[in-house]
């Protein structure tokens, strides 16, 4: 499923948190191919969050290139990076993914609000949201307030939200750690089904090596990134 140009390409990336001299991250080289399912393993403090922020473009690298879907993020302004993220990347957090006061359908449609191209790919957004919910085994809860859902349901709504409008890359940060073992397996089954159906690249960051068998590739954080942590 992978073709020539990688969806994600990082080269000689360096980043240091401004004002916090104690932590810096270097990524000499990292890639993910189109349609590839990659598990990035690392303990907390290994720079996972910083790496994800760099890929998503909410922070800009001090040096080096982050290229996503052929676009160098450093060529874009802050606002353009936000727009690019909305168009290109679906994001799933560990938990608290949803706006608690919004309905399920509001939450699913939220990224389309910021991504006109993604919006254009979906002819009937509400029908699409309903179809994704159905495929993810969510009961008929479209108009329910997100806060009333169980954690497992909330995570599945987050998947629907990440998938809507078919962004080429989905990034998930410990998406299963808030779930119990049974729910984890069921959740990953659903996630992989959908990612495969939509032919999307999936990059999951986790500390849980047991998830590894489902992925095309498992990468250790320590192998691709160097972090330095000095006492301030």
């Amino acid at each position: 499923m992978t073709d020539g140009t990688p969806i994600l390409h990082m080269k000689d990336v360096r980043f240091q948190w401004p004002g916090r001299a104690s932590f810096s991250l270097e990524v000499p080289s990292f890639e993910a191919g189109r349609g590839e399912k990659v598990l990035l393993l690392g303990e907390s403090g290994s720079g996972k969050s910083t790496l994800l922020s760099l890929i998503c473009g909410t922070i800009a690298a001090d040096a080096g290139d982050v290229t996503i879907d052929g676009t160098r993020l450093s060529d874009l302004s802050g606002g353009a990076r936000d727009q690019f993220r909305a168009e290109t990347i679906g994001v799933i957090f560990q938990q608290f993914n949803l706006l608690p006061f919004g309905s399920v359908v509001d939450n699913i449609l939220l990224p389309l609000r910021f991504a006109p191209e993604r919006r254009a790919r979906v002819s009937d957004a509400r029908a699409e949201a309903a179809a994704l919910s159905l495929a993810l085994g969510l009961p008929d809860v479209q108009t329910a307030k997100a806060a009333t859902l169980s954690v497992g349901q909330q995570q599945r709504v987050a998947v629907a939200r990440a998938l809507i409008g078919r962004p080429p890359l989905i990034i998930a940060d410990e998406p299963t750690s808030a779930l119990d073992a049974n729910s984890q397996a069921a959740f990953l089954d659903l996630l992989f089904d959908q990612v495969r159906a939509h032919d999307t690249t999936l990059l999951i960051v986790s500390h849980d090596a047991r998830l590894g068998e489902r992925f095309d590739r498992v990468v250790q954080m320590a192998d691709i990134a160097r972090t330095t942590e000095r006492a301030a």
Partner: peptide
Amino acid sequence: IFRAMGAR
């Protein structure tokens, strides 16, 4: 969440 969804 808004930021992750691409809100400026």
